[in-house]
């Protein structure tokens, strides 16, 4: 068993877990934040995307122990109280959510993209989100929402 302190969305969580546990499972089961999803457990779908010091990582394939001492941001940490982040607000306004299962990972990838590239071209958005699979939307409205959110954030 491994003792660690995880900094998630600005809060510190003391955790005791097997050293082999991945970050996704620890976030969901020990920290209790279930917004991050598992779609494949194999680095293929992006549903488990979180930010580590601002960088997007597939938490299914990342050891929780390695996240110690780094700032973890999950979907639960994006809105400011009841105020949605512009990415969330645009997804709502433009209809980017259907079943919602890919949504948390999609938004975290988009956040990482806009943080490093505030004025992405359509092509750059496509590249930035190409690791996030969605079976419901055909991506059209997600693409539009991220594009408009970028404009709003600037």
């Amino acid at each position: 068993m491994h003792h660690m302190n995880l900094d998630v969305n600005g809060m510190s969580y003391p955790i005791t877990a097997d050293a082999s546990r991945n970050l996704l499972s620890v976030l969901r089961n020990e920290v209790g934040l279930t917004g991050t999803k598992e779609g494949c457990d194999d680095c293929e779908c992006g549903a488990c995307m979180v930010l580590l010091d601002g960088q997007p990582v597939n938490s299914c394939s990342y050891l929780a122990a390695q996240a110690e001492g780094r700032a973890v941001t999950t979907i639960e940490g994006l809105a400011d109280g009841d105020d949605l982040h512009p990415l969330q607000a645009k997804m709502l306004e433009l209809g980017g959510v259907q079943c919602g299962f890919c949504t948390p990972g999609m938004i975290m990838s988009a956040k990482a993209l806009l943080d490093r590239n505030p004025e992405p071209s359509e092509e750059e958005i496509r590249i930035g989100l190409s690791g996030n699979l969605c079976r419901c939307t055909g991506y059209a409205k997600i693409l539009a929402a991220v594009g408009e959110a970028a404009v709003e954030i600037r």
Binding site: T34, I75, L78, L84, M91, L92, E93, V97, G100, F101
Partner: peptide, 16 residues
């Protein structure tokens, strides 16, 4: 209309 159910999905509160 924007979807009334979306807030939960967008903030990670939706329960699967």
């Amino acid at each position: 209309l924007g979807r009334v159910e979306d807030a939960a999905f967008l903030t990670g509160r939706a329960r699967y």
